[in-house]
Amino acid sequence: MTVREQPTASLPRFRHLQVPTSIRVFLHDPKAQVATIILLVVIFFAAFGPAIAPFGENEQNLRASLEGPSWTHLLGTDQLGRDILSRAMYGSRVSVSVGLIVVAIAAAVALPIGLSSGYFGGWVDAVLMRFVDTWISIPPIILILAIVAIAGTSLGNVMLAIGLASFPVFSRLLRALTLSLKAQDFVTAARSLGASDLRILIRHILPNTVQPLIVQGTLLVGVAVLAEAALSFLGFGAQPPQATWGNMIAEGFPVIRHSLWPTILPGALIMLFVLAANFMGDRLRDVLDPRLRGSL
């Protein structure tokens, strides 16, 4: 990226080329503003939820069950009289960690596959890409269910399963990036200086794939959060009484005839969080890598 940097004197003329400007462009976009605010609020709740939540995660008060919003319980209570707002705050911890860990798992699996497939080509590429093609053909939810059935029901296994189900997107992206990067002059230069394949891959190619990976990772956060919520709802994720947004909807569903509050809020939070992650990914893509716009 140092190539793109211009001397300070020419700043006004080349404003659109400057990295800080791209951040400014990003923050001037209304969609990006909304996304940033939502994500910051959710991350804040995830980090400080236990400290600021008015009630405990599983603090029951059966006399106050299924109440609507009041000053004591700002967003009402569920059938066990637990404070919905507090539980939603605790639940945000699960969603944020699911988003981050799933992306990390998917990237970790995809890195060796995508890099070597693109770099070595030939039969390595053929074998690895056939494997990825096959993996993609299995519908993700079925794949996740199969992994959960084998590994057992827990939040950790669900994250592992979602990560494993979603790595092909990353590996295809990495393969395409590596293919174009390995043909560039700086790779030829490194090779003529005697750099090994491993060194070229790690020191020269990998750093140049980071930006597109961040964009794809942000978009995957939304997918991961939706998948975890669906699996929690089905009962395969974190087990009750742990508060996750999916669990909260599952627990609220049987009492929808009496109160809608336990169901509406967690669903709306999932939607907002996924929406924010998608907006963020779209806008980051436009700002960081205009070449990829609309192509993925």
């Binding site: 939706l226 669906a230 709802f233 999916g246 929808i256 669903g267 999932i270 998608n278």
Partner: peptide, 22 residues
């Protein structure tokens, strides 16, 4: 289109049940 992609399908389905059944 934006909401359809971001909202959990089961949550929207519960919304339908509330409206059309309950």
């Amino acid at each position: 289109a934006v909401v359809g992609v971001a909202a959990p399908s089961f949550w929207l389905a519960i919304g339908l049940i509330i409206l059309f059944s309950v």
